[in-house]
């Protein structure tokens, strides 16, 4: 039986915490939620450098990288991952982020194409919908 191409597609997502941050509750919940939503989930493990995260994303050929930081270093680490993805030939890989992100920081991150920026307590459904939506539109060019 032949399937429509779209049905063969499964979102591949890397969930990662770049830098020195062990607060992994949120990212572990998200990893499970993404998996239950039918995505292929790869987890970076704790304490990778932004370089290691970007390398993993490119090597694993993911559609999207989901970053989480609760230690206040997002303005350094998130843009760094994004920039390195471009350098390593993964410029088309989408980047979403979340954690403790003050309002003032959000416009700067959004401008770099790092979206989502959800805080604690955001509904899992909302985050999943955002990831699916971006992947369909920007990676799979669906309307």
């Amino acid at each position: 039986m032949t399937r429509k191409p779209r049905e063969r597609k499964k979102i591949r997502i890397l969930v990662a915490k770049p830098g020195l941050d062990g607060h992994d509750r949120g990212i572990l919940v998200l990893a499970r939620a993404f998996r239950d939503a039918g995505m292929e989930v790869i987890y970076s493990g704790l304490l990778p450098t932004p370089e290691q995260v970007a390398r993993m994303a490119v090597d694993e050929d993911v559609d999207v990288v989901a970053l989480s930081l609760l230690n206040g270093a997002h303005m350094t680490a998130f843009p760094r991952v994004k920039k390195l993805l471009g350098k390593m030939g993964g410029g088309e890989i989408l980047v979403v982020g979340g954690g403790i992100i003050p309002e003032d920081d959000k416009p700067k991150l959004l401008k770099l194409g790092i979206t989502g920026l959800y805080g604690p307590g955001t509904s899992l459904e909302e985050i999943i919908a955002h990831v699916k939506d971006r992947v369909r539109k920007e990676r799979w060019k669906e309307r």
Partner: peptide, 22 residues
């Protein structure tokens, strides 16, 4: 802060962006 908690001095590469943050 995180560099102190993980035992890195403030001038270590891994401390970049994290000194005094939390």
């Amino acid at each position: 802060d995180m560099p102190t908690l993980y035992g890195y001095d403030c001038d270590h590469q891994k401390a970049h962006g994290e000194v005094g943050r939390c």
